[in-house]
Every structure is written in structure tokens, then in C-alpha cells.
């Protein structure tokens, strides 16, 4: 057994007694002081994990929880995510059209770009336009001024 395997086996030990079931590891450790040291540290770690800090005192949470039972349940995220996903899909199509025009060397009329962005932004949840541009690695300056939110 080499040191790398020994260290891996040491990390898997859950108690000192495990060593008796690992004769290969035991004999390696006998002849390798760095691994013997690692085993010693591992035993100390297991000992510390076995006696953690006691929990701090906590108050009775029942009154606080009962007070919240009548709160309206807000399902955060679901509807917003669908709207954002749809908006990004439209934006991706619009930008893909523009990228296609560019790749063929066709000059993209500013009006087309402006229209594409405006359409994309119109479908996005308010306030997400800039985040979309940043997420796409673009800066607001790259967007025609007439289209910027």
C-alpha cells in the first residue's frame, strides 16, 4: 500500500478500532511516520467530532410558528420563472436573428436591432432587462439607445 492509498483509507476510518480490519493499512502505518502522524490526527478529529459543542439554548418556537399559520402562503419563484424563461426565449430568438444577419456579413439595420431588443424587453419582467444583458455578456451600451429600458 502506498501513502496515497493509506491516506484515503485513513480518511474512511470511523473509529480507531476500524484499523484492526485494515491489516494492510496497519502494517503501512507501522513503517511510515507521516502516515502514522496522519492517523494520529484522524483519531483526534474523530474524538472531537464525537464530542461537539452543546447546543445553545433556544426559545420555544411554538408561539412564533403559530402566529405565522395564518400568513398567506407566497409561492415564490414559479410564475416568475416561467415568465422569465419565456422572455429569454424570445430575446434569444431575436438576438439569434441578428447574429445570423451579422455572420452573413449583412449589415443589420439599427431599426431592426432596436425592434428586436424592444420586443425582447417588452416581454421581460420589469427590471430584468439589464440583468439579461449582463448575463449574456453584453453591456447596455451595445443596445441601441432607442431600445434601452
Amino acid at each position: 500500500m502506498n501513502c496515497s492509498s493509506a491516506r484515503d483509507r485513513i480518511s474512511r476510518l470511523t473509529c480507531k478500532e476500524d484499523l484492526t480490519s485494515e491489516p494492510g493499512l496497519a502494517s503501512h502505518v507501522e513503517g511510515c511516520s507521516p502516515c502514522a502522524h496522519a492517523l494520529q490526527r484522524h483519531a483526534r478529529l474523530l474524538s472531537d467530532l464525537a464530542s461537539p459543542e452543546p447546543l445553545p439554548p433556544f426559545p420555544d418556537l411554538a408561539p412564533r410558528i403559530l402566529a405565522r399559520l395564518d400568513e398567506p402562503r407566497v409561492r415564490r419563484g414559479t410564475a416568475w420563472r416561467w415568465a422569465a424563461a419565456a422572455a429569454f426565449a424570445v430575446a434569444a430568438l431575436a438576438l439569434g436573428y441578428i447574429a445570423g444577419l451579422r455572420s452573413t456579413g449583412t449589415a443589420v439595420p439599427q431599426e431592426s436591432m432596436a425592434a428586436a431588443y424592444q420586443e425582447a424587453f417588452a416581454t421581460m419582467p420589469q427590471g430584468t432587462e439589464l440583468a439579461y444583458l449582463e448575463g449574456a455578456g453584453m453591456q447596455a451600451a451595445a443596445v441601441p439607445a432607442s431600445s434601452r429600458p
Binding site: D8, R12, R41, H42, R44, L45
Partner: peptide, 21 residues
């Protein structure tokens, strides 16, 4: 889980270093 725990313990040993001595 055994593998996950092994990596966690190795990371803890690494992080605590000589404190364990």
C-alpha cells in the same frame, strides 16, 4: 456516503492542521 465522509474528514484534517496535534 462513505466516500463523501472520507473527503470531508480529509478536508477537515487539512484545515485544522497542527491543531489536531
Amino acid at each position: 456516503l462513505e466516500s463523501l465522509l472520507g473527503r470531508a474528514r480529509a478536508a477537515l484534517r487539512e484545515r485544522l492542521g497542527s491543531l489536531l496535534d
